[in-house]
């Protein structure tokens, strides 16, 4: 079953003025339930516009956005319900923190959903656990935390709504390798626990290779490529044409294939790469 499906979706800004800009042009795609999709593309390729379509922050100029086969714009008055089901984490979400304690800030979403207090407390605790926030940090002011901790608190604030679909715009931007791993690992854990669907926008090919099942490549407001991770990285040339990159390890295997030393170049994780080389070395 598809968690989200986009049918002939276009977004046009400034229709009828000389500043007319087509942000998204006839997008058709779907995000199957329980999968992780990585969206890659340049700044201005339409990735972020696509993200704000998914939870109804933006209304498409034409076309349909379906959440579990139902159009999200069917009842615009119930958009809050849609937004609680499709969690959206923006770039640098730490800049949205505002409440007195981390705990209260994480509870903002569930409070807006008018849930009973016990349920709110339960959800805050769970969300904090997924994001690796300690009991002690929950009582602190969000403004006392370090950069990485703030990021986690902000992501927990969206997880606390227990969305079925989670869309994240560069959740690990600016963090060091350990911080990246902790945040992305926690999100995968959340996905596995609730059978949720993850959509991660990222510039890091290594992260996409490591965590995603499918990849959607955006270019100039259109879908440039889409498919399973190995299919996409097998077509490295097409990615290079769009000025995008592949993981370094894939580059190595493309070179080895060129030299006739190995047969396939759809290798993008270290563990698999090691196995292949060991087999070749005999």
């Amino acid at each position: 079953m598809n968690a989200i499906e986009l049918k002939n979706v276009s977004v046009v800004y400034g229709e009828g003025t000389p500043f007319k800009k087509i942000a998204l042009n006839n997008i058709n795609t779907c995000f199957p339930q329980g999968t992780v999709t990585g969206i890659i593309g340049h700044t201005g390729s339409g990735k972020s516009t696509l993200a704000s379509l998914l939870n109804g922050l933006l209304k498409p100029t034409s076309g349909e956005v379906l959440l579990f086969d139902k159009s999200i714009w069917e009842k615009p008055k119930e958009m809050v319900q849609i937004r609680s089901q499709v969690g959206l984490v923006f770039q640098y979400p730490e800049y949205q923190l505002f409440d007195e304690t981390v705990e209260a800030d994480i509870a903002f979403g569930p409070r807006n959903l008018k849930l009973p207090q016990e349920e709110i407390d339960k959800r805050v605790k769970l969300a904090a656990e997924f994001c690796g926030i300690t009991e002690r940090d929950l009582k602190r002011s969000p403004f006392e935390l370090s950069g990485g901790q703030k990021r986690r608190a902000a992501i927990a604030g969206v997880l606390a709504m227990q969305p079925k679909v989670l869309v994240l715009d560069e959740p690990a931007a600016g963090l060091d390798p350990k911080g990246r791993e902790e945040i992305l690992g926690g999100l995968i854990e959340y996905k596995n626990t609730y059978g949720a669907t993850l959509i991660i926008i990222s510039h890091s090919m290594e992260d996409v290779a490591k965590y995603a099942d499918n990849i959607l490549v955006m270019n100039n407001g259109e879908i440039y490529m889409q498919g399973a991770v190995e299919e996409i990285f097998l077509q490295a040339e097409r990615l290079f044409d769009a000025n995008l990159d592949v993981p370094q390890i894939t580059k190595l295997f493309i070179e080895l294939k060129k030299r006739g030393l190995c047969e396939s170049s759809d290798i993008y994780t270290l563990g698999y790469a090691k196995k292949v080389i060991e087999k070749l070395l005999g």
């Binding site: 060091d176 390798p177 350990k178 290594e206 993981p247 370094q248 390890i249 190595l252 270290l270 790469a273 090691k274 080389i277 060991e278 070395l281």
Partner: peptide
């Protein structure tokens, strides 16, 4: 100290650990 190394560096290191 929670820093990463380039992927190919790590690959060669992993192979080294396995005795190559």
């Amino acid at each position: 100290v929670s820093l990463a190394v380039p992927q190919v560096t790590e690959l060669l290191y992993m192979l080294e650990c396995d005795g190559y």
